[in-house]
Design a protein around this nucleic acid. Structure first.
Lengths: 199, 199
DNA sequence: ATGGGAACGTACCGAAGGGTAACCGGCGCG
DNA sequence: CGCGCCGGTTACCCTTCGGTACGTTCCCAT
């Protein structure tokens, strides 16, 4: 008979196990019973800690998002020039992906983007990343184009990560980060302003 | 009383309308009744043309995927050197996004990535895109790194598109394509091989 | 005109799953 | 010793939704 846990401990354990379950099966693919079973308890226990399935899932998104954001913020804070900011930012990102496969799949691979509520939560994260990237684009183009390119770079990292995580094999995040950062940095400096309608 | 349609015509109309419905609500968010109602018929009619909800959805993915692939293939076929291939490829991609918002959302935004079956279908598309991009990476690095970077570039276009489609406003695909292609091309040429473990 | 087949609607089934009411049992406290 | 608190379970409800059996209307061909 598994030992009883205190309420806060149980809550943490549920979050842990739910992350894995949802990452594997997706929000719709996993039932509350699945989560409960994986946690070694029964359904009503989940509802003592979370108001609803959506509530639980959103808590996970929030938590994982914070982990990601913290890592990147901490890393880029140490850099002064744009180039090393790019490097360190991507490095932090890929390191996070490398040791939080489940978190990555939860945010970017489990249909979180479909549901309006969840999509908002995920969007906040990508939006913030983009906002951090946008100033690195030196060329003189519209603000909206600059933001679009920033989002493109967020997608750059996401695309690479999806592939890497999808393969299931281990990978060296620093090596990938170096290449991707090089691509991004050189790419950013190559963008040229379009023909302006005269002002 | 709406006129009766011939079987092939009805099938096409269902596909049309289902694309819109699924793009808006996602696979799980839209019921067969929703689709039927939007098509102006009742549920059993859907099942006269498609074996199951999954079957219908998969047909949509297939169709949209083919449209995308054809556009890109046709565009890149006209190019000789890598640089213009890059340009024309991205241009075809963004043009497709610009006038098939629903298709884009279906493939890349409606949780198609979550379900194993659908994920395979979508993956085939990105995989092909990546395979087309990979040869453009000139630098001498591992095949696996090369493919990872190729997938990153697929994500680049996806990230930009997600933003553009999400904003809902119109945009000039050629202008975006020019910038993104410039970024990608210059970026690709800037990637350097890592320190080799000696051979 | 009259059969027949194709398109379509009505009404239903059954399973899955989110959520809840009520009960249970062990540990700590007076 | 007993009593109450709290983590936990059992058993259930109810809605949603994928899928289907069967009846009905309309058009076309002989």
């Amino acid at each position: 008979m598994p030992p009883r846990l205190s309420a806060p401990a149980r809550r943490e354990q549920i979050l842990d196990v739910a992350l894995e379950v949802f990452a594997n099966a997706g929000f719709h693919g996993a039932s509350m019973n699945d989560v409960a079973e994986a946690a070694g308890v029964t359904k009503p226990v989940l509802y003592q800690h979370f108001d609803s399935k959506r509530d639980l899932f959103q808590a996970l998104i929030e938590e994982v998002g914070n982990r990601l954001r913290n890592n990147i913020d901490k890393a880029t804070a140490e850099a002064t020039d744009g180039k090393s900011q790019t490097e360190l930012g991507f490095r932090a990102y890929f390191r996070w992906v490398a040791d939080d496969h489940d978190g990555f799949r939860l945010l970017f691979g489990s249909g979180s983007r479909r549901d309006d509520d969840f999509n908002d939560a995920v969007r906040k994260i990508t939006e913030q990343s983009a906002k951090a990237i946008a100033p690195l684009i030196a060329v003189d183009i519209d603000e909206s184009h600059r933001e679009t390119l920033a989002h493109a770079l967020v997608g750059l990292a996401e695309g690479a990560s999806r592939r890497l995580v999808g393969l299931g094999k281990e990978f060296d995040p620093d090596e990938i980060a170096r290449e991707v950062a090089a691509l991004a940095w050189a790419g950013l400096r190559a963008v040229t302003p379009g023909a302006r309608h005269q002002t």
